[in-house]
Amino acid sequence: MTPALNVEGISVALGGREVLRDVGFSLAPGAFCGLIGANGSGKTTLLRTILGFTAPSAGRVTLGGAVGYVPQKLQLDPDMPIRARDFVELGLNGHRFGFPFPSRARRARVEELLSAVDAKTFADQRIGELSGGQQQRVLIAHALIREPKLLLLDEPLANLDLRAAAEIIALLKRVAAQGVAVLISAHDMNPLLRAMDRIVYLANGRAASGKTQDVVRTEVLSALYGYHIDVIRVHERILVVAGEHGAHGHEHVAAIP
């Protein structure tokens, strides 16, 4: 089976600094993969490189088909005369020139996507007036309408409450079940633990990737960070903590997202 995404040893330099170094992994169709790392670890940079916005200084990205992208945030004026349904439709024909005649087939397709993401109740509201979770659904419908083989999402759970986050994850799980590879970035892996079957963990500009239980381990993450890391499991949550001896000789514990 050809992979939906193959990243081979890419390095990316931004402003003279190497942000990613020799990052490689691959995703099969239907994979649900978390891209985990602290703020500034290079999650957005990696997604932008996969999209082709940023050229890697080394390595190669191969795609198995169309890519859907859900950006980190929408910056929209709440007065914009664009309803949620108009925004979803732009995913289909936003790049087309020509008179914008309405079409029944297109409207039916938009309707289908709106119900797939449970967005029908607010489909006629201005997109700028929607809540973060509602906008997230509309963005996902917008990305899915072209039937991509790979869906990239940049921190879709940031700013969502627990329930909205769980709903988005369930929705993405359904998407993956249809054979779309899903790569979702987050600074906290815990909300994704049950859903994801793969993980790409970024630290120090490098990545560790594989099955979640093979990567989120003391030895693997310590090697990645370059100093001792403890992986602690408490009540189905995973805490990644750095243990170090502070100036006064007693143990410091700092949680790393």
Binding site: F53, Y69, M80, G94, H95, F99
Partner: peptide, 23 residues
Amino acid sequence: LLLCFRPLTYSALVPDLAATRGL
């Protein structure tokens, strides 16, 4: 402007996404 209605709208709302479609 009508001929360019959708691209002008798309690139104004989400320049990044429009760029992925070659605008």
